[in-house]
């Protein structure tokens, strides 16, 4: 399903964020990307989500090189992804419910269908009761759950989570890890970056370790 082929990303300064990365992941995998801070974990996810472009190499998803996607095709590719970013990026002027149904509004779902799915996603992460609240009134863990609900609401094939448990209490972190594992058990391919390997190791089917932009295992 996912194939990184000799992928490198170098910045104008000459610094390499990732260097000559090659790996494959099949549908249904739970891939844990670990490594110290600055090892290149987030860059790898950004490259897969086409937030950044590689300097060299190809990244194939279901056989298609996503680094060569036409500008017009990129939004439709991103709709097949569920993105959970480090800083959640919830919209502060919209309710929890509106944040969760945003991907569906973007994809052109009817209002009724979007409402039904958003409600189901919020129930899945245990926040149905907070649907009308604004994100700022939620705790860090709850905001992360809203971000997860938003990521899974459109039923993505691939869930990308960048440090989803960073700065969360251990109890909240375990909840999030379990939640991601439950989506994986339901058939969603999951790629998680985390420096907390112990938290995700029980759930992952593959573990990749990055060190200074290079794949160690």
């Amino acid at each position: 399903m996912i194939s990184f082929e000799r992928v490198s990303k170098r910045y104008l300064s000459g610094r390499a964020a990732v260097e000559n990365i090659s790996f494959r992941a099949t549908a249904g995998d739970f891939v844990l990307l670990s490594g110290h801070s600055g090892a290149g974990k987030s860059t790898l996810l950004n490259l897969l989500a086409v937030i950044e472009h590689p300097t060299e190499g190809a990244i194939r998803v279901n056989g298609e090189d996503v680094t060569r996607l036409a500008r017009r095709a990129l939004p439709y590719y991103r709709r097949t992804l569920g993105l959970i970013l480090q800083d959640q990026k919830l919209l502060s002027d919209r309710s929890v419910f509106d944040n969760v149904q945003l991907p569906l509004a973007i994809a052109g779902h009817s209002r009724q269908d979007a409402a039904r799915r958003a409600q189901a996603a919020l129930e899945r992460v245990g926040l149905a009761a907070r649907a009308a609240d604004m994100p700022i009134t939620l705790s860090g863990g709850e905001q992360q759950r809203v971000a997860i609900a938003r990521a899974i609401v459109a039923k993505p094939l691939l869930l990308l989570a960048d440090e989803p448990t960073a700065s969360l209490d251990p109890a909240y972190a375990r909840d999030i890890a379990e939640l991601l594992a439950s989506f994986n058990r339901a058939g969603v391919t999951v790629l998680v970056t985390s420096h907390d390997t112990a938290l995700f190791e029980p759930h992952c089917t593959r573990r990749l370790v990055l060190d200074h932009g290079r794949l160690m295992q």
Binding site: P75, Y77, R78, D93, L102
Partner: peptide
């Protein structure tokens, strides 16, 4: 700007 960035990440087209 933030809403535009988030919408793009979620697959919004330029038209949207």
């Amino acid at each position: 700007q933030e809403e535009v960035r988030v919408s793009r990440l979620l697959g919004a087209t330029t038209t949207f």
